[in-house]
């Protein structure tokens, strides 16, 4: 079975950042780093959030010197407790899907985030480590980005989906080839 991953359809993405904020909130609730694990990226050809593809032969896991990143349970998992913030994974990732976070941007006054209960309190800058998508594997509702997207631009792709789409594309390719030869003959 392939690893699972979340991907966005740029035809539907509004660039509204709802996915990113939902990501932050869901991870903060778990006591994980309160940073987004997907990044809305504007380009002249289209806009969508970019996040981890949970590669089968994940380069980030290969370069991690402390085995904080492992491929298991159909995903690429980063253990925030083990990570030493060496940044190798971020350099190796072909999608730019891993960020190194923990300190606030220079123009912003550092202050503790306000949370409703003391249990959830966290301070920016406490620990600088790699941040990447974990498919919200702690949450029975699944990835929050998928759930909150107002245009349903995001979806969770599971192993079978890729094969199904490939079958559809192959079928399309046959139709195309048939048409091409017909035209060439005619």
């Amino acid at each position: 079975m392939f690893n699972r991953f979340v991907i966005a359809n740029p035809d539907r993405c509004l660039g509204c950042y709802t996915c990113m904020a939902a990501c932050v909130v869901n991870h903060a609730k778990q006591g994980l780093q309160a940073y987004p694990r997907l990044h809305v990226t504007y380009t002249p050809v289209g806009t969508m959030p970019v996040q981890c593809h949970h590669c089968e032969d994940a380069p980030c896991a290969l370069v991690c010197p402390v085995k904080a990143i492992e491929v298991k349970e159909q995903m690429v998992k980063l253990n925030e407790g083990l990570c030493i913030g060496c940044k190798m994974c971020a350099l190796a990732c072909p999608f730019g899907a891993i960020t190194i976070q923990g300190t606030p941007p220079p123009s912003v006054q550092a202050e503790p985030a306000r949370t409703l209960t003391a249990l959830l309190a966290w301070f920016a800058g406490q620990k600088t480590i790699g941040i990447k998508c974990d498919l919200c594997d702690f949450d029975e509702q699944g990835p929050q980005c998928v759930r909150v997207c107002p245009t349903k631009a995001l979806q969770l792709v599971e192993g079978g989906d890729v094969e199904r789409w490939s079958r559809l594309k192959r079928a399309g390719a046959v139709t195309g080839a048939v048409a091409m030869f017909k035209e060439a003959e005619g």
Partner: peptide
């Protein structure tokens, strides 16, 4: 109008 969806300001 929103049919079960919200944006970032509505949610957070």
């Amino acid at each position: 109008v929103n049919e079960g969806e919200l944006c970032v300001k509505g949610y957070f």
